[in-house]
Design a protein around this nucleic acid. Structure first.
Lengths: 213, 213
DNA sequence: ACGGCGGCTGAACGGGTGTTTAGTCGAGTC
DNA sequence: GACTCGACTAAACACCCGTTCAGCCGCCGT
């Protein structure tokens, strides 16, 4: 069945339109708007996916799979340090990225699973760094990985807030630009912190360790 | 009926009910539910506030004022290091706290203004620390303050995500518990990072400074 | 004692939502 | 050619939303 000119399955068109709309407007976006984007009736969305929730689940799954694929590709041939340079290429993943940010902001279980993946990755990178002698060991490697991911997540959210206040481009709008702007503002303080720490001596840490044997 | 037992102005009751509902369910919560909580008709909500958006603005303002008051009180008589112990008292601010988290997740301008305040505070604390010799100076004090606030914001959001995945108590549910649990899991990695940094040498930072004169 | 007024309400309005229903169309099967 | 089946749709449905309307009722100034 070769039907119309460029007719990828309407199912996929619907899913992609949903991902784009959800990413741009959040999960309150209406089915009819999504259907319009996909040049399809609202009823067909239900016909294919059963319900809006199920549609969202399908979007979650597809986004998750896309990210996993992109991540394993990126891991194959790049050192983590220069991945930043590669980030401009992310523009092609714009909708997926925006969707992920919305998902984070929404606070659903899908987002929890996503950050779990990030933490896992960070933990293994850090472990590799420790083994190579470039990263200090930690008493709580998992907690440290979580802290670093929290930094990134928080930076992302704060950039989104800046965008709401008209001070920056929104990650959900133009992910590529937002990411590089974010990086520019974040890298120097981050590197400072990560190489020298914040305090001039270890008295705070010592005091804490005193109380938690 | 000559006014009910404890009849604070219905206006306030409506505002407080709205703050609680918004905090628990997000800003999608319906006017009728809020009105029910305040033992009042939905029409009265509009009568007093004009519109749902205006009601939310009133909530924003009240929460903002409450936080400012609490913050200036906390600043008066506590050293920032032991404020953590004081945090259990926060239980009384539970609804305000939950509202703030929702506001953050919602991504509105009110939240942007709120984190601006946090960054400002952090920056002045850090400056004081630098002056006192306990905190290292930075090439970008504002950026560093933002990075630290981003850490906190990210940690908050990640705790909310854990709650959605059933692994923790939600900051929007029982703020007191959530905060101490968060602190327990976060303090050690944070202190490690802040006293020793992450890297064993300054090569990453040096490389960056090389390229950004 | 009375008029007005503001807090307050139940009911309705208009619009948007996700979903259901009944049905059309086109292609593949016997 | 008759039949089936799945993609697809327009219209309707039931519901929830924020908001409006008309009017009730107790308080207050006069």
């Amino acid at each position: 069945m070769f039907s119309r000119v460029v007719d990828v399955d309407a199912r996929e068109r619907i899913r992609d339109a949903a991902i784009a709309r959800f990413g741009r407007e959040g999960f309150g976006a209406g089915l009819r708007a999504i259907a319009l984007d996909a040049q399809v009736s609202a009823a067909l969305v239900i016909h294919h996916y059963g319900s809006k929730d199920a549609l969202r689940a399908a979007c979650d799954a597809h986004v998750h799979a896309t990210i996993r694929r992109a991540k394993s590709e990126a891991m194959r041939d790049e050192s983590p340090a220069q991945v930043i340079g590669q980030l401009a290429t992310i523009e092609q993943y714009a909708p997926v990225f925006a969707y992920m940010v919305r998902s984070l902001m929404d606070g659903g279980p899908a987002a929890a699973q996503f950050v779990d993946g990030l933490v896992e990755d960070a933990e293994s990178y850090l472990a590799a760094g420790v083994a190579a002698g470039t990263v200090r060991p930690s008493r709580d490697p998992h907690g440290r990985a979580r802290a670093l991911v929290a930094s990134s997540v928080g930076t992302l959210l704060m950039t989104q807030l800046d965008a709401a206040a008209g001070r920056a481009v929104a990650p959900t709008d133009r992910p590529g630009e937002a990411i590089v702007a974010m990086a520019e503002a974040t890298v120097l303080p981050g590197l400072e912190l990560y190489t020298y720490g914040l305090f001039t001596d270890s008295s705070y840490l010592d005091a804490y360790l005193e109380g938690h044997p």
